[in-house]
């Protein structure tokens, strides 16, 4: 992938990023079954379908590839950027000329990757490869009994929001989609991903913690 020009790298970054965003929507819509007050019956049914259906398994591989492409290209671009200014400035422009989110995509991205590893270990690995058969709903419930784990999740969603705050709107620019008439729509679309979706995800751990502590 390293012999692609930086314009094409950014193009693939944008496409893979938007693809991963579509996964955020699908994943959220499935997870909202957790909030259905039926003791997890509906969620278990959904989780069972997700881990047994052949097409979902194929999609899973495509999704994993999406992550790999996005992460590897991100690292290659970060390395190129690092090499392009060997001597740093004594005084940097900071927020005067660009947003925090746009300058620290590598940092927020690295944190999201760390979250992803922890998240997969807790849920995906336990449910799919655990020694004893697990009831998906109970795994979720048990994990979110720990306030520290819940706080880690909330921080992760916050950081994900920062990553998407720049990422989603910026991907349109990388794809060359820019027009004064489109601008407000791109910003609404971006807002959906950096604000509404991380907020909706945050409700789930808070819901479980609330019922564990006070329910």
């Amino acid at each position: 992938m390293n012999n692609l020009s930086c314009v094409l790298k950014k193009w693939v970054m944008a496409l893979s990023g938007l693809f991963l965003c579509s996964f955020l929507v699908v994943h959220l819509s499935g997870n909202l079954f957790l909030l259905n007050p039926d003791g997890g019956a509906l969620f278990n049914q959904y989780a069972n379908f997700m881990s047994t259906n052949l097409w979902i398994r194929v999609t899973e591989i495509i999704l994993a590839l999406g992550f790999v492409v996005h992460i590897v290209l991100g690292m290659l671009l970060a390395r190129q950027a690092n090499q392009s200014r060997p001597v740093a400035y004594a005084v940097s422009p900071g927020n005067e000329t660009s947003s925090f989110a746009s300058r620290y995509m590598w940092l927020t991205g690295a944190f999201v990757l760390f979250f992803l590893v922890v998240h997969l270990k807790t849920f995906f690995y336990t449910m799919r490869f655990g020694d004893v058969p697990h009831v998906p709903y109970e795994v979720v419930k048990a994990a979110f009994e720990s306030p520290i784990y819940v706080i880690f999740y909330l921080i992760s969603f916050f950081v994900l929001g920062w990553h998407l705050r720049h990422g989603v709107t910026s991907s349109f620019q990388s794809l060359g989609i820019r027009h004064p008439k489109l601008k407000p729509w791109i910003h609404i679309f971006g807002g959906l991903f950096w604000f509404v979706i991380p907020l909706a995800y945050s409700v789930i751990p808070l819901y479980f913690l609330y019922f564990h502590m006070w329910g």
């Binding site: 930086c6 950027a81 000329t97 660009s98 947003s99 746009s102 620019q173």
Partner: peptide, 20 residues
Amino acid sequence: VKTMELEGFGHCSNTGACEI
């Protein structure tokens, strides 16, 4: 674009600092 990269310039992160 090829020459730009060969000369050692980086990629565009769309931060918008340049236009400011």
